[in-house]
């Protein structure tokens, strides 16, 4: 974990936070030992570290691909190359500055009116060049290096982010706010989101971890392994991903394996509501040998809330936590003592 290697240069923040999901992992180990003070300290350290990256223009940033990105002034025309980046920009109140988005940027609805620059996995470089942006925000898995090179040659700075965990998402939000020159907003948002996240972690610490089966596709039945952000959400929500150890990232699995895995909770995620997914739920209800079915714990969740690294993932985390730990009193504001006593 890079945070340990030295204290923050502005450049280090991009790397330390976006290089894989290691900050989250580190926290995890500490938490598992129940070392609360260290946790608080680390959380504070993160915040301090974010604050340390003070804005001063003509600034040099380093992105997730370890590329240097120089910005002379806060960017005013930003092209987003992924739906979650679009969400982050709007969340930071930068909607006005968004010059272009990808095809499936449906949220928030205002984003749909922006010029389209192709799809997340295949962007149209011509269109981007024509929009004359002063910053392009891309993702590591979606956008090809060819496109990034091309835009670089056109003199358009491209900054690549790579949030792979819930905490990584929060760090990305802070980082994008810094790039855009509205660092205070991002830091404030990061503090609020981190608070909501920590509340969940706090309330589920020490509780049993129910086995969760997350179904991301109905036919064929597909789920997720541990190399996904869904896995991070399940883990932070106090659950254990039934299929975390499978070798394939988004494996197809048979109903039989779900029966054998005896999940305590089944969660079906989808972009659409109603019909099809209600039927998928009914399908599971025919197998009472599954603990989740026996105790009527089969739930539906909006997939946008748990599969994109956007600010809404915290909402997704809260919903998942309420499904996985219904016994916890979630409505209460600051009931640390009570929960502490409960374990």
């Amino acid at each position: 974990m890079r945070i340990k290697t030295g204290f923050p240069q502005v450049e280090d923040i991009g790397l330390g936070f976006f290089w894989g999901n290691e900050p989250g992992e580190e926290h995890m180990i500490l938490r598992d030992h129940g070392r609360k003070k260290e946790q608080v300290f680390l959380a504070l350290a993160c915040i301090v570290l974010l604050l340390a990256a003070a804005p001063c223009w003509g600034k040099v940033f380093r992105d997730a691909l370890n590329r240097t990105v120089v910005l002379d002034s806060p960017p005013q025309r930003i092209v987003s190359l992924a739906p979650n980046i679009t969400e982050i920009l709007y969340y930071l109140g930068l909607g006005e500055r968004v010059a272009g988005v990808t095809q499936y940027s449906y949220y928030p609805p205002e984003a749909m009116k922006k010029p389209k620059v192709g799809s997340y996995i295949r962007v149209n470089a011509e269109k981007i060049i024509e929009l004359k942006p002063d910053l392009v925000l891309g993702t590591m898995d979606g956008n090809s290096s060819h496109t990034i090179d091309l835009l670089g040659q056109a003199g358009i700075p491209v900054y690549v982010v790579n949030p792979r965990s819930v905490r990584g998402t929060i760090a990305t939000i802070a980082c994008i706010s810094d790039l855009a020159g509205v660092k205070e907003r991002g830091d404030e948002a990061a503090v609020l989101l981190t608070e909501r996240l920590e509340k969940i972690v706090r309330k589920t610490t020490g509780l049993d971890r129910p086995t969760v089966f997350l179904q991301i596709n109905i036919k064929p039945i597909m789920t997720v392994n541990s190399h996904t952000i869904h896995n991070d959400v399940i883990r932070l929500a106090g659950g254990k991903n039934m299929t975390g150890n499978l070798p394939i990232t988004y494996p197809r699995i048979s109903r039989e394996e779900v029966l054998a895995g005896k999940p305590d909770v089944i969660i079906i995620s989808s972009m659409e509501r109603g019909g099809r997914f209600e039927r998928a739920r009914q399908e599971w209800l025919r197998w009472p040998s599954i603990p989740a079915v026996k105790h009527r714990r089969v739930y539906l969740v909006d997939s946008d809330l748990i599969d994109r690294p956007s600010p809404r993932i915290i909402r997704g985390l809260e919903i998942m936590a309420s499904f996985i730990h219904p016994e916890v009193n979630w409505s209460g504001g600051r009931e640390v003592e009570k929960d502490g006593a409960a374990k």
Partner: peptide, 10 residues
């Protein structure tokens, strides 16, 4: 931009 579009892309 036109030069880039023509020579590097098209």
């Amino acid at each position: 931009p036109a030069k880039l579009v023509i020579f590097r892309i098209r």
